[in-house]
Amino acid sequence: MQGFRYLDDTAILRLSVEKCIGCGNCLLVCPHRIFQVQDGKAEIVDRNACMECGACAKNCPTAAIYVNPDDGCGCAAYIINSWITKIRGKAASGCSC
């Protein structure tokens, strides 16, 4: 993904090294090259390229990874809708994608 960097120091991605068993699932499912497994432990090598898709957290057998849990496809329409929801207290209609 050269040429495609989004905002730095924004994505919410946490890894608990104590819980990690080094299975390598996160490395396999991540569509960007965020993780490396070394000496039986995963480490985050390129945090700023994370798009918060949640694939790593979903496929970690020991729940060692935490990703921004707000779902939705990351489009502006979705976020506007969820803001309106917060203001009006009604269920979000989501976006059209």
Binding site: L7, T10, A11, N68, G74, I79
Partner: peptide, 10 residues
Amino acid sequence: GSTPFTSLSG
């Protein structure tokens, strides 16, 4: 929303 590299937080 259509790109594969933008995070929701961003």
